[in-house]
Amino acid sequence: MIERIPDMVNSDAHLIRRGRFLSTTFLVEIGDRGYLIKIIEGRVVSITPGPFVTPNYSFALRAPRDEWEMFWKKVPEPGHNDIFALFKRGKLKIEGDLHPFMANLLYIKDVLAAPRKEAA
C-alpha cells in the first residue's frame, strides 16, 4: 500500500498546496521494513525501501504491519482510523525532530492515509 502514496498525493493538487512549505524526508516502518519518504514542497518525490546503511530522516513513525493494514482500510475500524489512535494504544512510535510533523500535521495525516482512496 505504501508504494501507492506518491501517485495518490501527487495527483491531489489541494493536498500539495496544503503541504507546499514542507520539504523533508521521514521514515515509516511497517514491521521490520523501513521506507524513506522524501517530500519536496508538498510533493512526494520518492519512496525508498530499506535496508539502509545510514538513513537520514527528520522523524520516524514505526508500527507493526497489521496495524498499518488496519489503518489503510477504506473505512477503518474504531481505534485504527488515525495515527494518534495508534499511538494512544501504544502501537505507533513517533520519534525524531517532531517540528515538521506537528507544523504540518493535517497534511502528513492525509499523506499517510492516502492509500485508503484505493483500498477495497
Binding site: 482510523n81 488515525d82 494518534f84 506537528m102 507544523a103 500535521l105 493535517l106 495525516k109
Partner: peptide
C-alpha cells in the same frame, strides 16, 4: 492548524 490536526482523527 496544529489543534485541528490533533483532533481531526477523533
Amino acid at each position: 492548524e496544529v489543534s485541528a490536526g490533533v483532533v481531526s482523527g477523533l
